[in-house]
Design a binder for these strands. Structure first.
Lengths: 158, 158
DNA sequence: AAGTTGTTGTTGAACCGTAAACTTCTTTGC
DNA sequence: GCAAAGAAGTTTACGGTTCAACAACAACTT
């Protein structure tokens, strides 16, 4: 037989919270995407620009960038290709590894990020930060860190 | 001039939490999708089956269903059409409103849900419920309710 | 040093979601 | 009653994501 033990169903509270989570995430995404569309960007492209802007020389190896923005390599290739035609990024060969490709943000990309960032941050505030109680917001951070396995201070403060 | 006041940037903590959120959500989605793929479903299809199974006669108006699973009407039409070819749902005319279409779950759809549900619930536990501290999990629920504007008990308990 | 294995990044096809136009029907207001 | 406005679903075209196969290179292995 396969390992089909009795399923540990969620209790009523857990199920309510789980559905609240699904609803909340969907709502947040809707708002952020809608807002970024005014700048001709989606969340994936925006994140690419953010991570490039935070890196030395505004550049990052494709595989490194893919990990940071949680996109598959294939998806990143396609997305960066599109952004390249828009003049937001460009690509060059990696000097240290001839397999590698380095994506770098253009001046135009940088300018678009500077333009879009304030509105985006305001969206994040309106959609999440402002409506949520600060203690709950901190708990949200701990919860998501636990999900991704970030060590986090589980013990007592000293 | 446009209303470009000084942007209220996120402070270091808020930004860390926001990124934890993005990472956590992505991780949870990955796991749930990967698990459901074993049953030939994605999260959108699974949710359709769940909501149909909870409704009288295992049936729901398309627009009603669309609201519950947070899909656009267009998307739902496509998804249900696909599921219909798989034999998981079927469609019939709505008796009370001749514009309406009623989606209903087939026996096959019901059987697939019964088969997939335990594994899915286990995924939700492993990805979210189990790793997160119970108090933080409750706070997560309150936070997401605040995001979607669910009234919620903000005051003191009586 | 040659062969194996793993990594990096791209390609093209299939698939899915989005957006806008459109049909049919209901509801509203005069 | 009738025209206008609105709602329910579908359709089509387009764009983006996924998936599997692939080419080029690096890193081990012996």
């Amino acid at each position: 037989m396969t390992t089909t033990l009795q399923p540990r169903w969620l209790d009523a509270d857990q199920q309510r919270i789980w559905r609240s989570f699904l609803n909340g995430v969907a709502r947040i995404n809707e708002r952020l995407e809608a807002e970024l569309r005014c700048f001709g960007l989606d969340l994936g492209e925006y994140e690419i620009l953010v991570h490039l802007s935070e890196s030395p020389d505004r550049s990052l190896r494709m595989s490194d960038l893919a990990d940071r923005v949680r996109q598959s390599r294939s998806r990143l290739t396609h997305t960066v290709a599109r952004m390249e035609t828009k003049g937001l990024v460009s690509r060059m060969a990696c000097p240290s590894d001839r397999r590698g490709v380095i994506a770098l943000m253009t001046t135009r990309g940088s300018e678009l990020l500077v333009e879009a960032a304030p509105a985006h941050v305001e969206s994040v505030r309106r959609a999440l930060v402002d409506p949520v109680d600060p203690d709950d917001f901190a708990a949200l951070g701990r919860a998501m860190d636990a999900v991704t396995g970030v060590p986090g201070a589980t013990g007592v403060q000293d």
